[in-house]
């Protein structure tokens, strides 16, 4: 393929847009990691359920796309909170991280992932379904003469920025956000401040699942919706979280963008058929040269 700056520019733009979506899923994983001290292996399925909820709300209920996005986030948040309360809470109560219960939590997450894929299979079947959303209200951007950015990409960029800004505002400028940060840092002290810690943990989990769902609804119109879409997203989001520094929220977004750009450039200039490998190549490079990730502080070992 001949090299020209216009197409390089285009690949980077597409890479950033997809990367921000990885970043949003990674943001959820990081939120759960810092809030509950666990790595949530069923987070890809939250993304998948979010995409299906969005699809049902648009196709079957006939909601306009933006409302469906919000609806899918709320439904997935509730689903996530129910799962956390019923299944994970028993384990996290005994401690997360490097404790025995923390190991149990990893296995529980994997099990939940398989179970959720099968539940989705029962409801929606194995076929990939196209997500037909009416995005005519979004302008199609054209730059540098011949680069066209489709509506779904423009929308993804806009929604992602809004979500990140809202999360930042929530965490930094509201009382509840302050409580979330307090719980993430130390649960005992948070309790002594009068914070209802179990409630905050539910909230953190719901928030993270809602973000995953948003990513699903954003990706839906670009690709299609399928019950096994969560696996690859989980892996890419993990790569994003590790590249950015596990547990760091800005790191999750930056890691996501880097993974997105890296894989788009790899697909364009090396080989398109190995698109999904580049994320992990980047992951390995980062682990070799800066194991704590780009924005990561020293590995956070919890007792």
């Amino acid at each position: 393929m001949a090299f020209d700056f216009n197409s390089l520019f285009a690949f980077i733009i597409f890479g950033v847009t997809i990367g921000v979506v990885y970043g949003i899923v990674a943001l959820g994983i990081s939120l759960i990691y810092s809030g509950l001290d666990i790595v949530h292996f069923a987070h890809g399925e939250m993304y998948m359920f979010g995409a299906f909820f969005g699809l049902v709300l648009v196709h079957n209920i006939g909601l306009p796309y933006p409302l469906a996005l919000i609806g899918a986030m709320v439904l997935t948040a509730l689903l996530g909170m129910a799962i956390e309360r019923t299944f994970y809470r028993r384990l996290t109560r005994a401690g997360g991280g490097y404790t025995v219960a923390g190991m149990g939590m990893i296995i529980c997450g994997f099990g939940m992932s398989v179970a959720l894929v099968n539940v989705a299979y029962f409801i929606w079947g194995a076929e990939a379904e196209p997500f037909r959303a009416n995005l005519n209200f979004i302008p199609r951007l054209t730059f540098a003469g011949d680069i066209e950015v489709p509506e779904s990409y423009v929308l993804t960029a806009i929604i992602s920025v809004i979500l990140m800004a809202a999360l930042h505002y929530f965490l930094r400028h509201t009382k509840m956000g302050l409580a979330v940060r307090a719980v993430a840092h130390n649960k005992d002290i948070a309790y002594l401040m009068g914070i209802n810690v179990p409630l905050m943990i539910s909230l953190i989990f719901g928030l993270a699942c809602g973000l995953g769902a948003a990513a699903g609804v954003l990706i839906g119109p670009m690709q299609s919706v399928q019950v096994e879409m969560g696996y690859l997203m989980l892996m890419k989001a993990f790569a994003a979280a590790v590249v950015g520094g596990f547990g760091s929220l800005p790191g999750a977004i930056i890691g996501g963008i880097m993974v997105g750009i890296f894989e788009n450039l790899g697909a364009a200039y090396i080989s398109a058929s190995h698109k999904d490998i580049y994320a992990f190549l980047l992951l390995i490079l980062v682990l070799m040269f800066k194991p704590s990730g780009l924005l990561g502080i020293e590995a956070k070992v919890k007792a």
Binding site: Y191, L192, M193, G194, I195, N196, V197
Partner: peptide, 8 residues
């Protein structure tokens, strides 16, 4: 009572 209820 839970800790946060005692704070209240």
């Amino acid at each position: 009572l839970k800790p946060h209820e005692r704070v209240r």
